[in-house]
Design a binder for these strands. Structure first.
Length: 778
DNA sequence: TTAGGGTTAG
């Protein structure tokens, strides 16, 4: 229709209605952002209407919408006359495109030109002040609004509420809202959004109640925000908000539908999410991605892939968010094959160069592939890698044990002008905890203090973890005590590292500090402290922690139940261990291992092997720990052939790669039974490199069966691997004694004394600390 | 003719 009108305008003679028709065309095209309207420009000039301000303002608006800011600016500069609408038109174009700094400059040029702003101008410029958090400029505009008597304008009030909230004056913003005479849904929603940004979910919900009290009806925008809050408050709140929006008769538009689907997805309620999804036929890539990511979070990878295909069949094209969700699923199920298929599709649609999809691809390859090459290839393809790309790469390198390389890339990232964020620092600190020496942790600590990042609790926790991982508990404690505040992760991190270092008593003492600071325990801290009690065979603290887990409601968590089984098993309270096991709805491999280990420890060999069979029957997959437990059960029970049979059948059936500890157990099993030659054959033919321990094991068995030649051979081979270990001399001396050659035994002991092994560990320690000092000076 | 609030991940 408008094309026909345009044609009529150009082909016909200039008439008195020309200006009217042109303005109608421009209004029409402006409302629909149709670039065809620009065609009016040349006849407007030809027919002498180039000075018409109204037509020019409309043309300016159309230029900014359809041809970009530069052309609009050129048009503006060439305008013979300008008024407040012309200035505000271009100003709003700067604001809408996110050029806030240019918008502010332009606003001040407007004032310099002598053009007075109106409420439209002030509203636009306030948006830029908010975005830039330019409170000084914003408050001077507030003064201007008051002077002009515009303070009752609801749009300007909403802008001011947004400005004050974004600049950290939330209380003032709230006061402004409460004192608004004609507050509307937008003003209230702006304030609710501000609370959400500050993660004050309860306050956001409370504000909704105040809004209803103030008789301001909420709209679909308000509910989208409230749903976001309830995603953090719990399913009950989410359902309540859903009920309220139905009660208010709010129409289900696509964005609102997406927000509801997202809320149910976050609580793993995919059936409810699908019900809402199917309520209306409207669909877009946002909604589909929400559904797909919901399935991924609920560990329903097959359903996520099905949804992806349905989405493509329905004609909706996946975007980088969709690929990110699906690639996360690949990482969770460790499917490199699926990840590669998605990578191929991403290349086809040109998303492999996209930074978001690229970051997800780096993460997938780092987690699913045994090499880091593919991740590097993706990284190199990304058009402009951001801080997330670098962080994912650095964290992946550290996870693959390329510690030195992860530091190199951290340096390269900074040289490329990308500043690390708290995630980057935490990832690189994790790498520090894997090194042998504290140099890197200390250097990074210095950088963190300089860049003021030490106030971030995530960074603080990572620093505590790095020092504690290096067993520098005093330094870890020093960082902890300097932190602005500490949370359950801070203390659990420290206690976990203490447990790993065998300082279980120290770990238990951490509880005192947590209680003193009123830091609540969660399922992770409970499991950690239960494990400390287990490490100390400490029933009193263990029982108290068991009570805590029941009272706090964390008793149902699988990690807590497993820690309880481990505690009771280590304390040889098999009745309690069984009880904890029986109470679990779905025991996993760790639960079964805990129970079997308790049975082996208490000498219940036959019940232990029978539990192992129960485990296989229940469909839970045994792991390398299970295999070790079964072998040690056989070893303790003297069941040599059964042990060998289990070793071969279990490792093949469950694809378990045997480790040195398994071979050590088998050598012990054979050695104790006197099958010394078979044990030696096993050591010689095993597919792993021998260590000193395995020779010690067979040497011990040689002593039991008085086999001097084999014992001497084992001692010689073992000492080649670890010449500073005095155990070989002691075991060999005992073998000589047992074989009636105490003269050789005494000689061996004398040789050990001459070598003065007691000094060797200290010597080693001196070497380490000298190396530490050297590294620190570097 | 120029002005305000909303959805998906890492």
């Amino acid at each position: 229709m408008y094309r026909r009108t345009l044609y009529a305008v150009f082909s016909g003679n200039p008439s008195s209605r020309f200006r009217d028709i042109c303005s109608r065309i421009l209004v029409f095209c402006n409302s629909r952002s149709l670039r065809d309207g620009i065609c009016v420009h040349s006849p407007v000039i030809k027919l002498g209407f180039e000075d018409d301000l109204y037509l020019n303002n409309n043309l300016l608006c159309l230029y900014s919408k359809c041809h970009g800011l530069e052309q609009a600016r050129q048009f503006f500069d060439e305008m013979p006359q300008r008024d407040v609408v012309s200035w505000t038109g271009l100003l709003s174009a700067y604001v809408k495109s996110g050029n806030h700094e240019k918008a502010l400059q332009f606003f001040y040029s407007m004032l310099m030109s002598g053009q007075a702003p109106n409420e439209f101008t002030l509203s636009s410029v306030l948006r830029s002040c908010s975005a830039l958090e330019e409170f000084d400029h914003g408050s001077s505009i507030h003064t201007c609004i008051v002077k002009k008597g515009m303070e009752s304008n609801p749009i300007l009030c909403s802008n001011l509420i947004d400005l004050y909230s974004k600049c950290g004056y939330r209380e003032e913003a709230c006061n402004m809202l409460m004192h608004m005479e004609n507050s509307d849904a937008i003003a209230w929603t702006t304030m609710i959004s501000s609370f959400l940004e500050d993660r004050k979910w309860n306050l956001a919900l409370h504000l909704y109640l105040r809004m209803v009290e103030a008789k301001v009806p909420p709209n679909e925008f308000t509910f989208v925000k409230l749903l976001a809050a309830s995603s953090f408050l719990g399913l009950k709140y989410g359902m309540l908000i859903h009920a309220h929006l139905i009660m208010w008769g709010i129409q289900l538009n696509l964005i609102l539908k997406t927000a509801i689907v997202d809320m149910y997805s976050r609580f793993y309620r995919m059936e409810d999410a699908i019900k809402v999804f199917s309520k209306t036929p409207d669909c877009d890539v946002f909604l589909w991605t929400t559904i797909i990511s919901g399935f991924v979070q609920s560990s329903k990878v097959r359903e996520a892939i099905e949804a992806f295909f349905l989405m493509e069949v329905s004609g909706v094209t996946a975007n980088s968010f969709t690929y990110s969700s699906l690639l996360t699923a690949c990482s969770s199920i460790q499917s490199l094959e699926l990840g590669q298929q998605l990578h191929s599709r991403a290349i086809l649609v040109g998303l492999d160069k996209d930074v978001s999809a690229g970051n997800a691809l780096i993460d997938m390859y780092m987690k699913c592939s045994c090499t880091v090459e593919n991740a590097f290839q993706v990284f190199r393809c990304i058009d402009s890698p951001n801080v997330i790309s670098w962080t994912t790469l650095i964290a992946g390198l550290a996870a693959h044990n390329y510690i030195r390389e992860s530091f190199q890339f951290f340096q390269e990232m900074r040289e490329a002008g990308v500043e690390p964020n708290s995630f980057t620092l935490s990832s690189i600190l994790r790498a520090c905890g894997m090194t042998e020496y504290p140099t890197h942790a200390m250097q990074l600590h210095g950088f963190i203090i300089k860049s003021n990042a030490d106030h971030d609790i995530t960074v603080g926790n990572a620093l505590v973890d790095a020092y504690a991982g290096l067993e520098l508990f005093d330094d870890a404690w020093g960082v902890l005590s300097m932190m602005d505040h500490r949370d359950t992760i801070t203390y659990t991190t420290l206690a976990t590292r203490m447990n790993h270092a065998g300082h279980h008593g120290m770990a238990l003492k951490v509880i005192t500090y947590m209680v003193r600071e009123d830091v609540m325990m969660d399922e992770f801290s409970l499991a950690c402290f239960l494990s400390a009690s287990a490490g100390m065979n400490e029933m009193i603290s263990g029982r108290q922690l068991h009570c805590c887990s029941v009272k706090s409601g964390f008793g149902g968590w699988i990690s807590v139940s497993n820690a309880l089984i481990d505690l009771y098993a280590k304390c040889q309270r098999m009745k309690d261990a069984h009880k904890a096991f029986e109470e679990m709805p779905e025991p996993n491999t760790v639960s079964w291992n805990g129970l079997i280990s308790g049975l082996v420890l208490t000498g219940n060999i036959s019940p232990a092997l029978s539990k192992f069979e129960d485990m296989r029957l229940s469909g839970v997959k045994p792991d390398s720990v299970t295999l070790l437990l079964v072998l040690s059960a056989c070893s303790r029970g003297g069941l040599v052939d059964l042990g060998l049979e289990y070793f071969h059948s279990v490792k093949e059936a469950y694809e378990i790669s045997p480790e040195l500890r398994h071979y050590n157990c088998l050598v012990n099993l054979l050695g104790q039974a006197g099958r010394l030659d078979e044990a030696r054959d096993m050591i010689e033919n095993m597919p792993l490199k021998q260590n000193a321990m395995i020779y010690k094991t067979l040497l011990g068995a040689c002593r039991l069966h008085k086999n001097v030649p084999l014992g001497e051979e084992m001692a010689r081979k073992g000492m080649e691997l670890d010449p500073f270990d005095p155990t070989f001399y002691l075991l060999l001396a005992k073998l000589y004694d047992a074989s009636g050659r105490s003269d050789l035994g005494d000689g061996t002991r004398q040789m050990m004394r001459d070598l003065d092994f007691r000094n060797f560990p200290q010597l080693n320690q001196h070497v380490s600390s000298a190396r530490d000092r050297f590294d620190m000076q570097m």
